[in-house]
């Protein structure tokens, strides 16, 4: 892991050792709808350092994408509102910045990759033009230089015959190639942080492997921070360093990748892991978490997971569990682990 000194010091007045690349503190996001206020994010804390991959794992409606959109500053406000929270990029709160300052960070320092590459690219412009646009707009390059840069980028994301294809339109590329173009676009200005929102969900397995490999290689090469948002436990196990599991707008468990898979400390995580079909369970019932993900307009009181939790007790229905540190039975704290369960001890040790 590289420390923060590598980056331009001007940009991080509060910087120095120990300041993470990005830190989200007590973030709340709500949406005002006709039926009421949907609380999509309810106090999320996470941080990511340069060269590190944080996987944010969750189902639809867990708030994982909304958090990322808030970080990126691309939430539509209204209907969204951020009543509380801080988003610190190198120690500076982006929510307090002016629109102009934020725009500078967005795209140049933080880039985003979306799930659907086809709809994220403009269909009537060539990919070369769209890639070159980054350089023309942000760096004032000439058209010719921008095109050379675009070809370079396409080479870097391993698009075959880049020079010949630079003038092609998005629909002329396959899904995997389009996602590479999206990655190239995100990389164009060599950002410090990439947020990838389900980058391979729309892709086939063999292509998904190519794209994830590429993303991991590039991350190492540029020493970027990566926030990977996904629902796929397999992808997370392949690339993540640490994981935040989200449920109903909260982080319910936080752990380094090995710890989470071997010894989950939250019943939801445990349920997710148990419901993966395993070889020795063939012919038996799969473990299934009962019930449905909660309606964000009516999040259950207490722990949001309580109606679905096999271990729920009375306290779970009344008291919201805080994300508390997880320790061994002898009391030694497990590094980087936390669980928002009243009964985390029973879950991890029992």
């Amino acid at each position: 892991m590289t420390t923060i000194e590598e980056v331009v010091p001007v940009e991080s007045p509060a910087g120095g050792d120990g300041v993470p690349l990005l830190e989200v503190r007590d973030l709340h996001v709500e949406f005002h709808t006709r039926e009421g206020v949907a609380k999509a994010v309810n106090g999320v804390n996470y941080s990511v350092n340069a060269g590190e991959t944080l996987a944010v794992l969750g189902e639809s409606g867990s708030g994982k994408s909304v958090t990322a959109q808030a970080v990126m500053g691309i939430l539509d406000m209204p209907p969204a509102r951020i009543p509380r929270g801080e988003i610190l990029f190198r120690g500076q709160d982006m929510l307090k910045m002016s629109g102009e300052e934020r725009r500078k960070i967005r795209g140049q320092r933080i880039a985003m990759i979306f799930q659907d590459a086809l709809s994220s690219l403009n269909p009537v412009l060539t990919v070369g033009y769209q890639l070159g646009e980054m350089f023309r707009v942000h760096q004032g390059m000439s058209k010719k230089d921008a095109k050379i840069k675009a070809i370079e980028l396409m080479d870097r994301v391993k698009i075959p015959a880049a020079a010949a294809r630079v003038n092609d339109y998005p629909h002329q590329f396959s899904g995997g190639m389009r996602q590479r173009i999206m990655i190239a676009m995100a990389l164009a200005l060599e950002p410090d942080l990439i947020i990838a929102d389900e980058p391979t969900t729309a892709l086939d397995v063999t292509v998904q492997a190519q794209v994830m490999d590429l993303l991991a290689d590039l991350q190492r090469e540029y020493n970027m921070g990566l926030i990977l948002i996904t629902h796929d436990l397999g992808v997370v196990a392949d690339v993540a360093d640490k994981i935040a599991v989200m449920y109903a707008g909260r982080i319910v468990e936080r752990a380094p990748v090995h710890g989470l898979y071997h010894r989950p400390a939250h019943p939801y995580t445990k349920g997710l892991l148990d419901s993966i079909p395993r070889l020795d369970q063939k012919g038996q019932e799969l473990y299934a978490i009962k019930g449905l993900p909660p309606n964000l307009l009516r999040i259950p009181t207490g722990c949001a997971f309580n109606p679905r939790c096999p271990q729920a007790q009375d306290i779970c229905r009344t008291e919201v569990p805080a994300l508390q540190p997880v320790a061994e039975q002898d009391g030694t704290e497990l590094d980087g682990r936390g669980s928002a369960c009243h009964f985390w001890k029973e879950t991890i040790h029992g």
């Binding site: 009962k290 449905l292 309606n295 009516r298 109606p307 679905r308």
Partner: peptide
């Protein structure tokens, strides 16, 4: 409001 029920349970 009634639709967010757990059918199985």
């Amino acid at each position: 409001t009634k639709t967010a029920v757990v059918a199985q349970d």
